[in-house]
Design a binder for these strands. Structure first.
Lengths: 237, 237
DNA sequence: GCCGGAAGGTTATATCGTCTAACTTTCGCT
DNA sequence: AGCGAAAGTTAGACGATATAACCTTCCGGC
């Protein structure tokens, strides 16, 4: 986080915001999103009621902050996983990334659900989340840039190629993570990353929500199978 | 639904329960799960407040009913899709099933999220949901029973085979949907169905939650790609 | 050093939601 | 005809979000 310099007032403010978020995360872990209650946070802090509104304009505002933090967190651990395995073959890098992602998700399921569970009633994701989500996906893009996609995924590759061609920001984002080798690198890289992300979520949301309860498989095995076959589809080394 | 015979009292009761659920679905469609409020339902019905508790013991009780209805609904449309395409090759049957499933989800996203969005605070899924979920998956099991899985999915197939061997109910459920041809039909069928379900959810939850907003692809294409490659993995005809 | 004003905190209150308690009314059934 | 359960009512406890109106602390410029 930034240094939060400024006067002592600003520093105190930032610290209090931090404490509030901390307690909110505890409530989240204990009872899910619905259990995050400003009044109870206030009580925990020894404050009373409306004082919290000095720090967060509304409950949604607090939740937004938690969501942004979580995205940042994920981006960080994924960057770390990517760095840790940078020298290894693409398949293993994918495995490492996915493993880090899954660990994050299953060790703090409520936080994962905060990001990917049902969107809140009237809640509209702040535009920053798109940026953050992209940052998180970056490492996946890099991996699939080297892929040679099977015919079955061709139309998806084509759509992604067109997307990158249409929006310069996207092309720039891809370029940031790849050293372009061929012509439609961007399309392949984006398609692979999208599929990887989608498959991870397929497994993880079901696992984290407990929908696999009573089914005789190890979710980790399912996830690895999903990524294994994806790596095959893109002929990853 | 059953004839709900019995006295006129029972019939009236059942009808009122139906109206309550109807209004609840409307609120769900308009504002998500959080927008379902017993008091407002009561107002809509011209009743006042606590009267609803004669029909549903609690808000969670009402939600449970909605969830069960939704599962039944899905099972029904999937059965229909399976019947509609019974004579066609496995790949096309998969496509038909997935299409029906996706249509259901995207035309009533809130209802889909009711089933697969974040679980409610203290809500524990009634055991019936497991039954219902299994019923919904049945048609997928049938399709993959004919598959010849690639080596990449072997460990998953093995786990599912062991599961069926361990729990007679599961074996019976599989047998109900297949005409066993080989030895480990059950393992293959279950693994394929599980993967199909997982992939569908990966795409659909992201789509329905709007997480694909601003990404340059058609979710339908992504879904078809995902299933196409799965069909390849299982060498479906 | 001092004092003006913003930031932090308070209590009171409106509103809305779930759910219980206690009472009354309706109406099917014997 | 009338018993009794089902259906409905009002009153109210409780907890949550959020606003209003009002003190209090203390940073910072002069």
């Amino acid at each position: 986080m930034a240094q939060t310099a400024g006067g002592p007032r600003a520093r105190y403010r930032e610290q209090t915001r931090g404490e509030i978020k901390e307690i909110a995360l505890r409530q989240l872990a204990e009872g899910g999103i619905g259990a995050i209650a400003l009044t109870r946070i206030a009580k925990d802090l020894g404050l009373s009621g409306p004082a919290l509104y000095r720090y967060f304009a509304s409950r949604d505002d607090l939740l937004s902050a938690l969501i942004l933090d979580a995205y940042d967190d994920i981006a960080t651990i994924l960057r770390a996983a990517a760095g840790r395995s940078a020298a290894r073959p693409a398949r293993e890098r994918l495995r490492e990334l996915a493993g880090a992602y899954r660990t994050w998700a299953v060790t703090q399921p409520h936080r994962y659900l905060l990001l990917f569970g049902s969107p809140l009633p009237g809640y509209a994701a702040p535009p920053d989340t798109v940026t953050s989500a992209r940052a998180a996906l970056g490492p996946f893009v890099r991996i699939f840039a080297e892929g040679k996609p099977a015919p079955a995924v061709q139309s998806l590759v084509e759509q992604m190629r067109a997307w990158a061609a249409r929006e310069p920001q996207v092309a720039a984002w891809v370029a940031e993570h790849t050293t372009p080798t061929g012509d439609d690198t961007a399309g392949v890289a984006l398609a692979g990353a999208l599929q990887a992300w989608t498959r991870l979520h397929g497994v993880l949301t079901l696992e984290v929500e407990g929908q696999f309860a009573g089914m005789g498989h190890d979710p980790a095995t399912l996830m690895e199978t999903e990524l294994h076959t994806l790596a095959d589809t893109f002929s990853l080394t």
